[in-house]
């Protein structure tokens, strides 16, 4: 090919000598600007190899003179975000929960931070919408077991319920059936009575019998009217909300075997500011007292 030039008849341009199905490739030179751009790219690539991490080695890689790494960059941007937040975080640290709730700016910051902390730490049990499940309280409603004001919520988050922390919220309901404190019939009557408190019972005679047993066995914690007690963590039995279900079999099950859910203590795992933000957020969900 090199020794004799073949010229395309139509364009008058030299061909490469390659031919496919009668189509010959013209050997037009590259545009100058293209060529210079190409050289510039080559130089850029060489420089890039030298200054940036580029070549994989057996157990590491070339570092490059600029010492760039995406890991370091991420750490830096996290640091920057922390710095940007620190002005608020310092104020959150210094303020009481009531002060935060009264300051719109701090409140907005706490709610946003609380929402993301909730999603990371709490949503596994309470659900991403804080609506709970059977055995895991719904935090949107106005029914609280251990109290629903800011301080009570904060205390619960700090020390948990039946957790391994010394200051944990703790109570223990007897397993009336399993430990044979009450007979089957008595338990059935008490269940009827409890259901009648929220007007969902069906057997008035059984309820009347159960009322006596309730006064003897249950009213110490659940109060005489069944309205519950925050201090003892005894649920209100008069309302429409049932942590473990409100049909008769669920109530019988609760009396027979007792219930004892647990929540971990978050103090020590989360910093104070985060716990404050969580308390503010949970309180804002609609049931805060």
């Amino acid at each position: 090919m090199a020794d004799h030039k073949e010229i395309d008849q139509v364009s008058g341009v030299e061909t490469t000598g390659h031919e496919w199905d009668g189509i010959r490739e013209l050997n037009n030179p590259l545009p100058r600007w293209w060529l210079w751009t190409f050289y510039a790219c080559c130089i850029w690539a060489l420089a890039y190899w030298i200054v940036m991490p580029a070549w994989p080695l057996i157990s590491s890689h070339t570092e490059g003179f600029l010492g760039y790494s995406s890991r370091a960059q991420l750490a830096k941007s996290v640091e920057r975000a922390r710095d940007a937040q620190s002005v608020y975080l310092d104020r959150i640290d210094a303020a009481s929960l009531e002060q935060i709730a009264a300051d719109q700016e701090l409140l907005d910051f706490a709610l946003a931070g609380g929402r993301s902390a909730f999603a990371v730490n709490c949503s596994q049990c309470h659900g991403s919408g804080a609506a709970g499940f059977v055995g895991y309280p719904n935090l949107n409603d106005d029914d609280w077991i251990w109290g629903g004001d800011l301080d009570a919520i904060s205390h619960t988050i700090h020390f948990g319920i039946r957790s391994d922390h010394d200051e944990t919220r703790f109570n223990e309901m007897p397993a009336y059936g399993r430990d044979e404190l009450l007979t089957r019939e008595e338990i059935d009557d008490v269940a009827e009575y409890v259901l009648s408190l929220s007007n969902s019972g069906s057997d008035a005679a059984a309820a009347a019998r159960g009322e006596v047993t309730f006064a003897e066995q249950c009213s110490a914690c659940h109060m005489e009217d069944g309205g519950g007690n925050y201090e003892l963590g005894a649920p209100n039995l008069r309302d429409a909300i049932w942590l473990y279900g409100g049909d008769k079999s669920a109530v019988v099950e609760s009396i027979t075997n007792s219930r004892a859910g647990m929540m971990p203590a978050w103090t020590g795992r989360l910093d104070e500011a985060t716990i404050k933000k969580l308390a503010i957020y949970v309180h804002s969900l609609g049931g805060g007292e």
């Binding site: 659900g127 919408g129 804080a130 106005d142 429409a240 909300i241 609609g286």
Partner: peptide, 18 residues
């Protein structure tokens, strides 16, 4: 409208939407 939860039952049996 809040989608999670869709609605909340209150202690008096009332229904609340956010």
């Amino acid at each position: 409208r809040d989608r999670n939860p869709l609605f909340v039952t209150l202690s008096d049996g009332g229904i609340r939407n956010g």
